[in-house]
Design a binder for these strands. Structure first.
Lengths: 336, 336
DNA sequence: CCGCCGTAGTTTTACGTATAACGTCCGCTG
DNA sequence: CAGCGGACGTTATACGTAAAACTACGGCGG
């Protein structure tokens, strides 16, 4: 019996059950068939319960050379989007006996201190949002299996990638607004250097360029409601537009405030669209026309891709489809 | 030199530098003064850089018997509040060489599967939100140092607690509304069994009871905008009120939608208050009068308390002050 | 000249687990 | 009846690190 205050080890269990430490390991590892009698196995399990034994994970990880733990690197958790990503990833991970540890990259912290130093856990692999890419560069030293979420397939450090079909989402938004008759756009862009935001800009430009007489101006804003409000208000004051296309729902919420400040109504005078479909989208009035992203599926696919890499298989590709959700913030432009 | 594909160990470094493994450990642990010459130490560091050596954390954790990692157990990450808690806790942790791992307790998952099985990391301690208390009961088996956030000091499983002064926040809200002249209240309560929500109800009842002629009715709602809207709408339809006090900002956003659905205006006909001061509070129109909680300080204090417990010191008490933020959603009630 | 201390290391051990390798005993088959 | 294989274990070892215990040597005070 271990002295009080010390956690019991498998050896303590063995002693209590009157067997060797190896037998305990076999029973707990469920590898005892044909090696230990059922009666002995039950005696071991009883001793485990009695002593409240829990295996020392550090020792197990050392012995096995793997941890069955992966790190999910996300930008700051100020949006519930990554909650969904985590949920999806964690579910798939659990099905395969893995755990997921979250590393919210300190926002704007530059090329972050090594995430491993911070999340001291020993890891088998990493899933990283491209929005936290600067934190990930530190990972390249270690040759840990890596999956990038929403990253440029070309320049993704050679890692596997899983992407949402953002281009299709922007296409749907553009065609919805063009179909309503809008011809003058403000693109409220996120002030974040990230491939996925570049895709938005590129696709919007391409779709509007296809319709003659259409103008698109761009304003950049930090992803915060107040920052977006200020940027949108300034931009609209200089160059009025009938449609404001925002890179995400938070920016759209700010844009709505800007429009109202200018004495205009939504959607009668100005239409506004978001992207994400957060809770925020239905909290504001009118509710936001936006693009729904399936965050959980995103996380699931990310985890599946990482498992594939870990097992030496090729991750299966294919972008994740997205869906336009039309609500009350879009309508035909006012008659001239 | 380790064979390609294998991570170099401290022994590989030792061989490359022409010293013993122990010397490497001394140099890396910064305990070499008087034990290893400066020249040799530099040779070791060069070898570390050359080989790209990184210590095996599993081995270190096993050897030291501690991990310098703590677990932060939170309810689902669907609010940015816990992002702040994490940030604060992680900052303090980093100052002390600790890392923080996040475990978002699966919402409504009942007495959760052992969080350790999920977050496979070996841990030195746990900080847990009382809203994820059911997940924490599993922890009691292990005698890990535990700090509870916003938990009943009486029934907190004997763990240290750190609390926000929620009672004071509710008091400020009540006096603000009573001062404006409101006498008929609806308390939109969170449908979550948690001590901190009980405190809200108790304090609101106490403050309003002090003013004759005041009525308070209670409606319970799940913490989601749509759920809150439905609950508030039904409650207001049965018993009109001039002030809706909500247990958090999300509920308040739903309440605002309910009020508008009933054809009433905010704040002219009905005042609404929240609690949290999330981004949501300033996203809606009018902006929400609410109580600002300092999430980062909360996380900081939680981590400091855990460090105190780990070092055998007594955590210093004292609730964290909160602050009423008056915005556009509250005004005097309409004249009768 | 002896003992002692400081410097500069090395050798050895322990952390707790998983598993390969090794023993027994016994019943059965050829 | 020799021998063999399955059931039921045990013994021994390795994972990579940190640190205690040990070695060796040069200089210096008494």
């Amino acid at each position: 019996m271990a002295s009080a205050g010390t956690r019991p080890t498998s050896r303590d269990v063995a002693q209590a059950a009157g067997v060797s430490q190896a037998a305990v390991s076999l029973v707990l590892g469920d590898k005892w068939r044909g090696r230990v009698s059922a009666a002995t196995a039950e005696r071991v399990r009883a001793a485990v319960r009695d002593l409240g034994y829990r295996p020392n994970l550090a020792a197990r990880n050392l012995r096995l050379g793997r941890t069955r733990t992966v790190l999910l690197v996300v930008p700051a958790l100020t949006t519930e989007f990554f909650a969904g990503v985590y949920t999806g990833a964690a579910r798939v991970a659990a099905e395969h006996g893995f755990g997921v540890v979250l590393y919210p990259s300190p926002v704007g912290a530059g090329p972050a201190r090594d995430p491993f130093a911070s999340a001291q856990a020993a890891l088998d692999g990493v899933i990283a949002s491209s929005m936290a890419a600067d934190a990930v560069t530190a990972i390249r030293g270690d040759q840990l299996p890596l999956v990038m979420l929403d990253s440029d397939p070309a320049g993704s450090l050679g890692a596997a990638t899983v992407n949402l079909d953002i281009a299709d989402g922007v296409r749907q938004v553009a065609e919805h607004l063009l179909g309503l008759g809008h011809r003058s756009f403000l693109h409220l862009a996120a002030d974040v250097p990230s491939w996925t935001f570049e895709v938005r800009a590129r696709e919007l430009a391409a779709r509007t360029a296809a319709v003659p007489g259409t103008t698109v101006r761009t304003a950049r804003a930090p992803i915060s409601i107040e920052g977006a409000r200020a940027a949108a208000e300034a931009a609209l004051r200089r160059h009025p537009a009938t449609a404001v296309v925002c890179d995400d729902d938070k920016l759209a919420a700010g844009a709505c405030k800007a429009v109202r400040r200018l004495g205009l109504r939504i959607p009668d005078d100005v239409s506004v669209t978001g992207l994400d479909d957060l809770a925020l989208a239905t909290a504001i009035d009118p509710e936001l026309t936006t693009v729904r992203l399936d965050a959980e599926l995103f996380g699931e696919r990310g985890m599946r891709a990482l498992l594939a890499v870990l097992e030496g298989r090729a991750p299966d590709g294919g972008d994740i489809p997205v869906e336009l959700v039309v609500r009350g913030s879009t309508a035909p432009p006012p008659a001239p």
